[in-house]
Amino acid sequence: MFHIYCPYCEEYREEEEFHPKGQAHIARPADPEACTDEQWGDYLFFRDNPRGIHHELWVHAVGCRKFFNITRNTVSYEILETYKMGEQPRFTAEYPEGKPDEQVAAEKVAAEAAGVERQEGVKA
């Protein structure tokens, strides 16, 4: 049974309150009409499915009903972090122990400077 920290409610709640919604950080093509069949198929169906660290989209279905992200190990099932939409993960396949503080701070400043309104792909 997972005990999941909802970054919006700021509380740990039981797994039963949440639903997994698949891989996170999949950016919808800006102009779907301009996509080739290949690009559109990749966006709709093809997934990373890693063995190890994975970024997932979850919804707090019977809580605040907000979507957020979880970084989780798909072998040990350990939840490494939860973070809000639009934010970048601290733990990635490249940084399994977590990115250093300076890098996290720099990424945050860069994201704010860019005025991010939607979630972008992982910049690992």
Binding site: D42, F45, F46, R47, N49, R51
Partner: peptide
């Protein structure tokens, strides 16, 4: 584990395990 093998071969599959 098909997805793991596909990654070794350099492509992705439309699968989730």
């Amino acid at each position: 584990n098909s997805g793991v093998l596909a990654k070794m071969a350099g492509f992705r599959l439309p699968l989730e395990s």
